[in-house]
Nucleic acid binder design. Structure first.
Lengths: 220, 220
DNA sequence: TTAATATTCAATTAATCACTTGAATGATAG
DNA sequence: CTATCATTCAAGTGATTAATTGAATATTAA
């Protein structure tokens, strides 16, 4: 008797979406997928989980409508379903930073406070980069850079930065960015650059947020 | 060995928030709490669950930072932690409607298509209500009306609407609203009003979305 | 104090989840 | 065709979850 009402069914469906976000492993996958599409194999090695486990997480994300899969040869490439997913993740971060003391503390201790100098806002950066006043540095892996980056940015993946410092002009300020607000790579980059005598700051967010803000993205 | 990185801890925390949203019962509670604060008792009877079960859901929401509790006498009143929560719920709905075929279908079949005439946009309503061109009808329970409503709105809870039709001027168009986009009460109201010869339409959203849009809210 | 009421806690059950392991599918290369 | 590789499926384990029931706590009313 008493069938579920349409509203109950709807809430059940929405709950499935939220539940798919309710796992640190899947949030990790989504952060990577926000940079561009990736095969199951790549995702497994980037997150450090087994391929089978990664595949199952990806299926849960796909069933929730958060990702899409594309089969090419023997590879399956997953990507985010759309910008709504990025917006939902941003809303989730915002809620956490505002209402969960533990998150606020973590963000302050490990992120905000490491970046002594004020991070650069996206709109400011574009302007100054076009005038040639700063070097924009993308420290993500090459695949992610190729899938889209800040126009004019230089790509030096974080683990190569130490050896390739010579490629950066010493006089100009460097603005580094990576995957997003909770990605540590740009923090590490700024610390390394400052130790070596560069003037360096972080972009306040990563490329997905840049793109979502409607700012121009360069490919390849 | 290998301690979790700050990012992992952060994602774990964010996942806890998302997991708290990952239950239809809790989404139901949040929709009610979006209208204003409520005691455990009231929430239990409004959702049709046991008090103990409701209390446990509320604690999960509170631990995730989504709700706050206030003790007054022997009652504990819960409320939403802030507008970020509403924004996250809006992002969740948006994601679902865009990327989950089942949700899109349900919304079309049970919601959009029942409302033949185009729903009224919030900004339009405020203008026309001030000019006295429409009667704004709030069909939510009295407590929710008192906690905040569209300025000048008349409150007739949906279950009393049949008997109290006389209170509405027959010539003016009626615009009805309730808790939110997935709340059926305003649909029922519009159907009833039209059967009785009124010109009636729905407001596109409920009061929480109205308030979130920065539109004025009247109390008491 | 005693009784009544609102809420939370504790214990239980059935269901679901994350992860592992090993096998099954499906596409490509030799 | 056979071997190889990427991915998915299926089964199993330990942990977590939603809901129920009954007891415990805390506030108010008599």
């Amino acid at each position: 008797m008493s069938n579920p009402t349409p509203k109950q069914i709807l809430f059940e469906q929405l709950a499935r979406i939220a539940a798919a976000l309710g796992s640190a492993a899947r949030l990790d996958l989504l952060e990577i997928l926000a940079q561009g599409e990736r095969s199951v194999d790549q995702l497994a090695s980037l997150t450090g989980h087994s391929v089978a486990n990664t595949s199952q997480h990806l299926q849960k994300l796909r069933q929730a409508g958060l990702t899409l899969g594309r089969k090419e040869g023997q590879y399956v490439f997953y990507r985010l379903a759309g910008d709504e997913v990025l917006r939902m993740l941003a809303a989730l971060r915002q809620t956490g930073e505002t209402h969960v003391a533990e998150i606020d503390r973590l963000v302050h201790d490990y992120f905000s406070s490491r970046d002594q100098m004020e991070p650069v806002a996206a709109a400011d950066l574009l302007d100054r980069a076009r005038k040639g006043l700063v070097t924009v540095l993308d420290v993500r892996p090459a695949e992610e850079f190729e899938a889209g980056h800040v126009p004019g940015a230089v790509n030096i993946p974080i683990e190569q930065l130490g050896k390739r410092l010579g490629e950066l002009p010493k006089r100009k300020e460097v603005v580094a960015y990576c995957r997003g607000p909770y990605c540590l790579m740009s923090y590490e980059a700024v610390e390394l650059l400052r130790r070596k005598g560069h003037k360096a700051r972080r972009l306040e967010n990563g490329l997905p947020e840049w793109r979502l803000a409607g700012l121009p993205v360069e490919l390849g």
